[in-house]
Computed example of a mutant assay.
Amino acid sequence: MSFFVSMVQYLDIMSRTDRLFQLMQALRDLPPPATAQVLAQETGVSERTIYRDIDSLRALGAVIDGEAGFGFTLIEDATLPPLGFGPEEIEALVVGLKEVMEVGDPSLAQAAKSALTKLKSRLPEGQAHRLKHAVLSAKRFYEPPEITIDAGVLRQAAWEERRVGFDYADAAGNRTTRSVDPLSIVFLQFTHCLLAFCHLRQDYRAFRLDRMRNLTLTDQFFRPRRIPMLREYSARLKQEGQTSANPRA
């Protein structure tokens, strides 16, 4: 009898462990904050079980923001066990980080290098070996144009949804002073560009970082509109790209 009791207890522990892993993955995959109702549907358990499992994950060291009636957001924490990655995921991580090391500004390139080193130290031995000797890589044989502003300050302004100002020279060399709401920095073909809403033109614009000078932060904020503004601008760029690629246009 004790054998069967122990087996039932073992299976219950394994089932609970698997359920906690599923909940962690659901918290990573679902748009935050994820409500208990949505998490219950995703994992196939009751909402009451979700609340208990959230408490269990928090007790194990997971940092999960939120509460009942509002939703939950998983904040990755260094105290959590190392994550496992599939072979293709490892290759994707390597090529992505090495691409940033090639084209990112100095601080971002150093951050990518540091992230790659941390991944190697946190992964299981077999996966760390695959990461070190990945098949895919990234290499560019040209230097992107020199960025003459502090791109880190610009990134932080975008995160804080803070308006910035700078002097700008267009392709013809004409200079203007701009006040913009920074939305995102993207690497387009050969250079870094800031996607922003320009208050001088009263429209969305893309600005090359190598043509920007005298970046200044203002005390004006545009939160919480960065994400919807970026979606709107991205949709417009996508539509314009499709139109220009259409031979009938």
Results as ranks from 00 to 15, higher is better:
Arg226Trp: 01
Asp210Ile: 07
Lys238Tyr: 10
Glu42Gln: 11
Asp105Tyr: 06
Glu232His: 09
Gln242Ser: 11
Glu91Pro: 04
Val100Gly: 07
His133Val: 14
Ser2Ile: 00
Leu230Phe: 10
Arg140Glu: 10
Glu99Pro: 10
Ser15Gln: 14
Leu30Val: 05
Ala249Tyr: 02
Gly86Ser: 13
Ile75Val: 06
Phe190Ala: 14
Ala249Ser: 08
Gln37Asn: 04
Ala169Leu: 04
Ala171Lys: 13
Gly104Thr: 05
Gly86Cys: 06
Pro81His: 05
Asp167His: 15
Thr218Val: 12
Asp12Gln: 14
Glu146Ile: 01
Arg130Glu: 13
Ala59Pro: 07
Glu125Phe: 06
Arg52Leu: 00
Phe141Gly: 01
Asp219Arg: 12
Val94Ala: 14
Cys198Gln: 09
Leu39Pro: 04
Arg208Ser: 08
Val63Ala: 01
Glu42Leu: 09
Leu131Arg: 02
Leu60Thr: 02
Phe166Gln: 02
Tyr168Asn: 15
Ala112Ile: 07
Thr218Lys: 11
Glu232Pro: 07
Ala169Glu: 07
Gln25Thr: 03
Phe190Pro: 01
Phe3Ala: 03
Lys120Asn: 13
Gly173Cys: 11
Ile90Asp: 02
Ile227Arg: 12
Arg208Leu: 09
Ser114Met: 14
Ala78Leu: 15
Arg213Glu: 15
Leu194His: 02
Pro228Ile: 05
Thr117Gly: 10
Glu143Gly: 00
Glu76Gln: 05
Leu74Tyr: 03
Ser56Gln: 14
Ala68Lys: 15
Ala245Lys: 01
Thr49Gly: 02
Pro33Thr: 04
Arg208Tyr: 03
Arg58Asp: 10
Thr176Met: 06
Leu23Pro: 07
Asn174Cys: 10
Arg201Val: 05
Ala157Ile: 10
Val94Pro: 08
Tyr233Val: 13
Pro182Lys: 04
Tyr168Asp: 11
Ala138Pro: 10
Leu209Glu: 03
Leu154Asp: 00
Arg52Gly: 06
Lys132Phe: 07
Ala245Glu: 00
